[in-house]
Simulated assay, not measured.
Amino acid sequence: MEEKELYFTINAVNMFHGIKPYKIGSIIKLVKEPENDYDMEAIRIELRYAGKSGYVANSVKTVAKGTYSAGRLYDKILDEDYGKVIFIIQDTIIAKILTKEELTKEKNNPDSDINFI
């Protein structure tokens, strides 16, 4: 059975480094943040060279059409998981969760910017 591709919107980037560190193809780390004061389903985004860089959108006002909100994505990912930036349109970033196979491929790619901590 083929795994369904899970796309999501990244927002709150201006609270950190802005959109500049994001590039199409960038590997991102997703970290569940249940202790977040504002959202119990918060999922933090980290970039290898920039650290904490945004959050998965979790509001109907910020989630791009056709993508998962943090609330819908929360139980579908590990406490720490990885994704890849697919689209950047103005200040909207769309990424997808990497499958186990895609993650293995990225780990074995010497040009990948994947960050395993």
Rank of each mutant, 00 (worst) to 15 (best):
G18K: 04
N58Q: 07
F16H: 04
K32R: 15
G18C: 13
N11W: 05
A50V: 03
Y22L: 03
K76L: 15
A12E: 12
N36A: 06
D39Q: 11
I77L: 12
K96D: 00
N108P: 01
N109T: 11
I77P: 07
V31F: 07
F8L: 01
P110V: 04
G51F: 00
R48M: 02
Y7I: 12
S112P: 09
I43M: 13
G51H: 08
K4M: 15
T99S: 15
G54A: 08
K105N: 12
I86D: 02
Y68S: 09
K100L: 01
A50N: 00
I43Q: 14
D75M: 08
E35I: 04
G83C: 04
D113R: 01
D39V: 00
F16R: 03
T9Q: 08
I88P: 11
I93N: 02
I89K: 13
Y82S: 02
S59E: 14
I88R: 14
I77G: 10
I28L: 09
Y22C: 05
K29I: 07
V63C: 06
K20Y: 00
V31M: 06
D75H: 13
E46D: 14
I93F: 07
G18I: 03
F8Y: 01
L73S: 01
E46S: 00
Y7P: 05
N14K: 12
G54V: 08
S53C: 01
K105A: 15
K65L: 10
A57Q: 06
M1Y: 13
I43W: 11
R72C: 03
D39A: 09
Y38I: 04
I19K: 05
K107C: 14
P21R: 13
Q90F: 04
E33T: 15
A70Y: 02
K20I: 01
A42R: 07
E101K: 02
K52W: 03
E80G: 05
Y55E: 09
M1F: 12
P110G: 02
F8Q: 05
R48E: 01
F8T: 00
E41D: 07
R44F: 12
G25K: 03
A64S: 09
A57G: 03
Q90T: 14
L47C: 05
N14C: 07
V13W: 03
T99W: 11
T92A: 11
Y82V: 06
T99E: 12
K23Y: 05
T9M: 14
F87N: 14
I27C: 11
N14W: 07
K29M: 15
D81P: 11
I19V: 13
K76V: 07
V85Q: 00
I45R: 03
K100R: 09
K107M: 15
A12I: 04
G83I: 05
I97S: 00
I77K: 04
T62P: 05
K84D: 03
K4V: 11
